[in-house]
Structures are given as structure tokens and as C-alpha cells.
Simulated assay, not measured.
Amino acid sequence: MAWIVLVISGLLETAWAVALDRSAGFSRLVPSVVFAVTLVLSMAGLAYALREIPVGTGYAVWVGIGAVGTALVGMLALHESASLPRIVCLLLVVAGVVGLKVFH
């Protein structure tokens, strides 16, 4: 169960990062509220998962999911560069996250 919560928390990290960008420095209400809610839920899920998963592994997986998710949203929805080197780097992050789970 801890791993499922950790993955969901990583996805929520993507949500709060995108909402933070869309909040325009907290000047827009809806994205600011989405940021606050998803941030709290993401942190709470990470805290829950760390009760069973070592902090080094759990935090790295959480950050990896959030980083890759945020970069993918940027590339697919926000017109950021989707160059081959960026995609290869994201695949390396994914490989690292999978490795941390496999060798846990």
C-alpha cells in the first residue's frame, strides 16, 4: 500500500508544480488553491509512505515521479522543448526510479 500511496503522491507533485506555474505568483485564485491542496496531499502521502519505505528511496522515487511528470506535462501541454536529449534524460530518471523500487 505504501508504494501505491507514494506513486499517487508523486503524481500529485506534478499537479502542484504545474498549478504553481499557472498561479502566476499566486495572483490567480484557482491555480493557487489547486497548488495548496495538491501540495498538502502530496506531502501527506509521502509522509505516510515513508512509514514503510526508507527515506532515501521514498524521497527519490517521489521526486523522480514529480520531475518526470512535470517535464512531460511541459512538453505535451505547455509547448516546452521535446528534444531527443531531454527525452533520453527523462528515461534515465525513470530507469533510476524503477531501479530503486526493484532493489528496495
Results as ranks from 00 to 15, higher is better:
residue 98 V to Q: 05
residue 72 L to M: 14
residue 35 F to Y: 13
residue 84 L to G: 08
residue 33 V to G: 09
residue 92 L to K: 07
residue 59 Y to M: 13
residue 83 S to I: 08
residue 42 S to Y: 05
residue 75 M to Y: 10
residue 59 Y to R: 11
residue 57 T to C: 10
residue 72 L to E: 04
residue 67 A to S: 13
residue 61 V to K: 02
residue 73 V to R: 01
residue 80 E to C: 03
residue 92 L to M: 13
residue 69 G to Y: 08
residue 21 D to W: 11
residue 74 G to Y: 02
residue 79 H to E: 14
residue 10 G to Q: 01
residue 82 A to C: 10
residue 81 S to A: 15
residue 48 Y to E: 08
residue 71 A to T: 12
residue 51 R to H: 11
residue 47 A to L: 12
residue 74 G to Q: 03
residue 100 L to E: 00
residue 23 S to H: 05
residue 66 G to N: 04
residue 56 G to Q: 12
residue 37 V to L: 14
residue 33 V to I: 15
residue 98 V to S: 06
residue 56 G to P: 03
residue 19 A to T: 03
residue 17 A to D: 02
residue 13 E to R: 05
residue 86 R to S: 10
residue 17 A to Q: 03
residue 12 L to C: 03
residue 81 S to C: 05
residue 17 A to H: 01
residue 40 V to Q: 09
residue 85 P to S: 10
residue 67 A to L: 15
residue 33 V to P: 03
residue 79 H to M: 11
residue 31 P to V: 11
residue 65 I to Q: 00
residue 4 I to R: 07
residue 32 S to C: 12
residue 91 L to M: 14
residue 25 G to H: 10
residue 61 V to T: 10
residue 22 R to G: 09
residue 89 C to D: 02
residue 59 Y to T: 13
residue 95 A to M: 08
residue 80 E to F: 06
residue 102 V to R: 04
residue 14 T to N: 05
residue 26 F to K: 07
residue 7 V to Q: 02
residue 52 E to R: 13
residue 41 L to V: 11
residue 3 W to H: 04
residue 84 L to H: 06
residue 96 G to V: 02
residue 78 L to F: 15
residue 80 E to H: 12
residue 46 L to N: 03
residue 96 G to Y: 04
residue 5 V to L: 10
residue 78 L to P: 03
residue 87 I to C: 06
residue 61 V to A: 14
residue 69 G to M: 09
residue 66 G to I: 07
residue 67 A to N: 09
residue 95 A to R: 05
residue 40 V to R: 08
residue 45 G to Q: 04
residue 78 L to S: 10
residue 87 I to R: 03
residue 28 R to M: 11
residue 73 V to W: 09
residue 89 C to P: 00
residue 30 V to L: 15
residue 19 A to E: 04
residue 35 F to E: 00
residue 90 L to M: 14
residue 57 T to V: 15
residue 100 L to G: 01
residue 88 V to A: 12
residue 75 M to A: 15
residue 61 V to P: 00
residue 25 G to E: 09
residue 64 G to V: 07
residue 15 A to W: 00
residue 3 W to A: 04
residue 90 L to R: 04
residue 90 L to P: 00
residue 42 S to A: 14
residue 67 A to K: 05
residue 36 A to E: 06
residue 63 V to D: 05
residue 67 A to E: 04
residue 5 V to F: 06
residue 54 P to M: 10
residue 2 A to M: 08
residue 62 W to Q: 04
residue 75 M to T: 06
residue 45 G to K: 03
residue 13 E to M: 12
residue 57 T to A: 11
residue 79 H to Q: 15
residue 5 V to T: 14
residue 25 G to S: 10
